[in-house]
Design a binder for these strands. Sequence first.
DNA 1: CTGAGTGCAAACAGTTTGCATTACT
DNA 2: AGTAATGCAAACTGTTTGCACTCAG
Lengths: 145, 145
Amino acid sequence: MATTATWTDHALRTLEDAGYRSGAARAHVVRALGRQDCCLTARELADQLRDGGDEVGIASIYRALEVLGELRLVHRMDAGEGVVRYEPAMPSGEHHHHIVCDHCGQVAAYEDERLEQAIDALADRLAWSVDRHDVVLRGTCPACA
Amino acid sequence: MATTATWTDHALRTLEDAGYRSGAARAHVVRALGRQDCCLTARELADQLRDGGDEVGIASIYRALEVLGELRLVHRMDAGEGVVRYEPAMPSGEHHHHIVCDHCGQVAAYEDERLEQAIDALADRLAWSVDRHDVVLRGTCPACA
DNA sequence: CTGAGTGCAAACAGTTTGCATTACT
DNA sequence: AGTAATGCAAACTGTTTGCACTCAG
């Protein structure tokens, strides 16, 4: 992820601008998220931080993720197996979607412009105001096939 | 749902063909699902059954839903707020997707042919074998706007 | 100094599992 | 008769909350 520093800085600044005080736990969470290139769970985040010597209480991780989600700095994504995954959300709105392997549980990312266009066109047709979307594909990954 | 009886019968027959014995709890779950036109949670299912005088233990409901899911008779869908929703899956493969209101939590269904085509084309391009997909839109419903 | 931020442990909600009982086949 | 299906209650898992303590502003 070429934009690692960019997102981290953007996130920290957005937090400050929104009036949040700076604290160690939240900053660690932000920095760890900035290093990711795809989604991860709260536990995975906790494990990474602990392994990196920056142990953060799980409650603080959830609280940080909640705030980041409200500020639209992270995107919550639900692979559908009872765990929520989180990933940094680019301010540009650029994003990808996920495909999950039914056998090994692996989660991969993909992008597709035509899909985005279809969703935009659909959103215009609906009486709702649509501001986000998730497309989760499921199937079998090449390794499990 | 014009296909209520059809789906219920299809499901009961598929269960029998798969070698499952017929039992009251599972049959009640199947019949209740056959009456739905959109997704509902295990608890909602339990409440409906209880209100209809057919009380079924929550464990049996989950076990029935698990079996039905394996047989591809129900589709699990995750609105992303910590509860799994289930809905009957048509043998034809015909299906719809969902849009969730951020404010009131309402879940509505929609269909879009162009979206399906985009996903089919995308699936062909990927090295994975894709057999299901979910598209969840989020935003604000007309009532909350 | 004051209150936001943090961590721990307890509380919670949804789901799953162990086990004794019931009832298809 | 034998075994799958069921229901209850206990166990589990991921997430949230209450509360005392710390630290940024």
